[in-house]
Simulated scan of single mutants.
Amino acid sequence: MEKSLWRNVLGICVLVHIICSHFMISMFDMSLNAGYLMTFLYACAGFVLCRSGHQIMRIIQLGSMVSAYAFFMIFALYDPVWFTLIKVDWVVFALLILMSLTYGHDFKERVTLWMMSICLGEALYALTIHRLTSSIVIGDLSFLSLVVQGSIFLLGVDQLEKLLNARSSRKPVKGAAKST
């Protein structure tokens, strides 16, 4: 990434996010990770800034991703036999990555959908199992790890797409010797 104001702002946001991820905010019998709140705010800002012509479609896609996250996390609680060999985090990761790649058209949309679905899915999951537990913890370190892994994977896919587009857009020069 070239040196620019955007890079500096992004670096500061990442550093503040890392520092805040070790703090928990407690209200009533609910604990929120400060890193979760920052991720949710970034995702909301991205969702507002990445306006597309089909805002209702974007909300429906987001709802399906949130439901998928909460469903698999709850399903793993009630029927753990399916997830003895494969951790539920990997199933959720693969499913939501595929949904983000399918629904999003560019990198910003994909990352915004990813972050928003993970944040809202985690909140829905925690509120759903609240009856089984004594307190709610939203956004633990495994959640933040999942967010980072997905964002890095989406960045890698975006860079691969750019590389493949650059290779396919090169046209052979007329009269140049072919390499064998």
Rank of each mutant, 00 (worst) to 15 (best):
E2G: 13
S4V: 09
L5D: 06
W6C: 06
R7C: 09
N8Q: 11
N8D: 13
V9N: 05
L10Q: 02
I12M: 11
C13M: 14
C13N: 09
V14Y: 12
V16C: 14
I19E: 03
C20E: 07
C20R: 08
H22Q: 14
F23Q: 08
M24C: 03
I25T: 11
S26L: 07
M27D: 05
S31D: 08
L32M: 08
A34D: 01
G35R: 09
G35N: 06
Y36T: 02
M38N: 02
M38H: 03
T39E: 04
L41N: 01
Y42S: 06
A45S: 10
G46V: 06
V48R: 06
C50W: 13
R51H: 10
R51L: 15
S52T: 15
Q55F: 12
M57K: 14
R58P: 00
R58W: 10
R58S: 15
Q61A: 05
G63Y: 11
S64T: 11
S67L: 15
S67I: 12
A68T: 15
M73A: 13
F75G: 00
F75K: 01
A76L: 01
A76S: 13
Y78E: 09
P80D: 07
P80W: 11
P80H: 05
V81S: 13
W82D: 02
W82A: 12
F83D: 02
L85G: 14
I86F: 15
K87A: 13
A94D: 05
A94K: 02
L96H: 03
I97A: 13
M99N: 03
L101T: 04
L101S: 06
Y103F: 15
G104Q: 06
D106Y: 11
E109H: 12
E109W: 08
L113T: 00
W114F: 14
W114P: 00
I118E: 10
C119G: 06
C119Q: 01
G121D: 10
G121A: 08
E122N: 03
Y125H: 05
I129M: 04
H130Q: 10
R131I: 14
L132G: 03
T133W: 05
S134M: 12
S134C: 10
S135C: 07
I136F: 00
V137I: 08
V137A: 01
G139V: 08
G139Q: 03
S142D: 10
L144K: 00
L146E: 04
V147T: 14
S151N: 09
I152S: 05
F153E: 04
G156V: 09
D158E: 15
L160G: 04
E161Y: 13
L164S: 06
N165V: 11
S168E: 11
S169T: 12
R170H: 11
P172K: 15
K174E: 10
K174W: 03
A176G: 02
S179V: 15
S179I: 14
S179H: 11
